[in-house]
Design a protein around this nucleic acid. Structure first.
Lengths: 145, 145
DNA sequence: AAAGATTGATAGCTCAATCTTG
DNA sequence: CAAGATTGAGCTATCAATCTTT
């Protein structure tokens, strides 16, 4: 398949990004599952809720995590069954629903966070220099929503 | 959840990477689906086979794409049903199977490639400087298998 | 009619088990 | 027994349709 040089470089960079994301995600998921019995997706939901002060509307949570709304709705269903989050209606807009991190969810998150951070370090950041990390953060932040 | 500064930077960079990957993959998948009726995963398989000269063993294909072996086996099943690839036994090792890009597969790939490259440019690279792209490629290539 | 959220139907993914060959 | 690959079963993700509220 023909392509000019610029295109080849861009696509190569994109492929490295995809490969890195898959490798690191797989390793993080394995660590959390083995050591805490927790799915990576569940960790991400709880960490995002925690960072937002414990509650977010479903819509906003989906946008921040860059996940499909249906998938999130179903994930929150399962997390609620296990007592990690609760749903709460929104007072000023009756269409809205909050996902709220429960006490149990916080406890699970607290125990899982070190595993997650260790994984990000081991599987991702340890291979990079500090300036690599800064450059990645800066560059990738430019990718549009 | 408590964490030191280094950890925060590493995790923030990792989150940007995940967000970028999800956004760009979603956009690429939409483009290919709408304009060519082709799934992104199928495109990736065909592009990898093409880059390898048209054929690869299942194992090697899974490693290069960083995908689950079962998922790949099933994906190749469906692609074979649609005539995009064929399976061929391996002569020197009867356990092995090749996935082989067919004539039809090549034709589909040829028509899909411009859409894919345009997507990588529009949804990913256009937001970055040339040196951002180089830095990403270089840094992400260090992430271990 | 549009926005927020969920659900029905279904395609696709993944773990563990299995089969075959080295 | 290990390696390559596939499959059975169960779970997850996604699209389109739906429901409710604005």
């Amino acid at each position: 398949v023909s392509a000019d040089g610029q295109s080849v470089e861009r696509v190569a960079a994109w492929h490295e990004l995809v490969a890195a994301q898959r490798r690191v995600s797989t390793a993080l998921a394995r660590d959390l599952q083995v050591e805490r019995g927790l799915a990576l997706g569940w960790y991400e939901v709880m960490a995002e809720l925690y960072a937002a002060g414990g509650r977010l509307r479903m819509q906003e949570l989906a946008v921040r995590l860059v996940v499909n709304k249906s998938s999130l709705s179903r994930m929150v269903d399962r997390m609620a069954e296990d007592g990690y989050v609760e749903r709460e209606p929104c007072v000023d807009d009756a269409r809205g629903q909050f996902a709220v991190l429960t006490r149990d969810g916080r406890a699970v998150l607290r125990r899982a966070s070190p595993i997650y951070r260790r994984g990000v370090r081991r599987h991702f950041a340890d291979a990079l220099t500090a300036s690599d990390v800064t450059a990645l953060h800066r560059a990738l932040g430019k990718v549009p929503p």
